[in-house]
Simulated assay, not measured.
Amino acid sequence: MSKNKTTAVLSETAINKLPYRPCVGLLVLNTKGEVFVAQRNDMRSEAWQMPQGGIDKGEAPRDAALRELEEEIGTADAEILAESADWHSYDLPRELVGRLWKGRYRGQTQKWFALRLRGGDETINIETEHPEFSAWKWVGIGEVAEFAVPFKRDLYRKIIEEFRHLAA
């Protein structure tokens, strides 16, 4: 096994001792009830995701959601429609644990928010100060999970079921 922290694969025991990174996730809807998904600019695969990001120390999840909206898709022109009833967690694949977030987390625990974009497509700008996405599109709510990386699909299905009524 390599001793380089960026490529080390941690043991199952070591991974199980790691905490989850506290985050928010954003299911952003347009006026047609379609969901915003974006392609990460640091991935080679065709996996798409909904916006998400860490909660800063002392920051409320709702505030983090609005901050992440602006940081990731360049707009604050949205209203929060709902907040997930529970926190949802997912584990990273074992080979990624030592590579992401300096190996400090086993995955993420997320509070999800459904938001409705008030403006049109012209309000979205993924060319932010620190861009995370290379492309974006709207998809039907039933299609979101199939665009995601495999380790996030179950989580996405739970979020979609909780917020599906908002897309109607």
Results as ranks from 00 to 15, higher is better:
L155D: 08
R164L: 11
T13W: 07
E59K: 01
R40Q: 09
G53C: 02
R157F: 12
G25I: 09
K5W: 00
F113L: 08
S11D: 04
R157A: 14
T31E: 14
L26W: 10
N16T: 10
E162R: 05
A38F: 10
L26H: 06
S134K: 15
G107K: 09
G25R: 06
K158I: 14
T123C: 07
P131Y: 15
D77Y: 09
V9F: 01
L69E: 08
S45L: 09
R67T: 03
V35A: 00
G53T: 04
P61S: 01
H88E: 13
A38C: 07
K152H: 12
Q39I: 13
T123M: 05
E68W: 13
G58E: 06
I80R: 10
G119Y: 15
E143V: 00
A78W: 14
S134E: 15
A148Y: 05
Q39N: 11
N30H: 10
E129D: 15
A8Q: 05
N4C: 03
K137R: 14
K152A: 10
E162T: 09
S89Y: 07
I55R: 01
H88N: 12
L92T: 11
K102E: 15
K32P: 00
C23Q: 11
W101Q: 15
W112E: 08
L18M: 05
R62C: 04
N41V: 14
N16H: 11
K17S: 06
R40L: 11
Y90E: 12
N125W: 02
A167R: 02
G107Y: 13
N125E: 02
P150E: 09
N16M: 11
D121S: 14
I124P: 08
L29A: 03
G74C: 06
M50E: 03
R157V: 15
V144H: 00
S45E: 15
W112G: 03
R104G: 12
E129M: 12
A60C: 02
G119Q: 10
Q49D: 05
G120K: 08
H165W: 14
I80C: 10
V37N: 00
L166N: 02
R21I: 10
S2M: 05
L115W: 07
A135M: 06
P22E: 14
T75R: 14
S45M: 05
G103M: 01
R106E: 13
M50H: 01
L29D: 01
E72V: 01
D91R: 09
F163G: 01
E72P: 00
V97K: 03
E95C: 02
V28G: 05
R44D: 15
L29I: 03
S134L: 12
L69C: 13
G103R: 00
W87K: 04
E59W: 04
D91A: 07
T75C: 14
V9T: 05
T128Q: 09
A14C: 00
A135R: 11
D154F: 12
A114G: 02
A135Y: 06
K137N: 07
W112A: 07
A145L: 00
Q110F: 03
R67A: 08
W136H: 12
G120H: 07
A60G: 01
S89N: 12
N16G: 06
E79H: 02
Q39W: 13
L69H: 09
E161Q: 14
M1G: 09
I141E: 04
S84Q: 10
E129P: 02
D154S: 10
V149F: 10
E72S: 04
E132G: 05
F151P: 02
N125R: 02
K3F: 09
G53M: 01
P93V: 12
L69I: 13
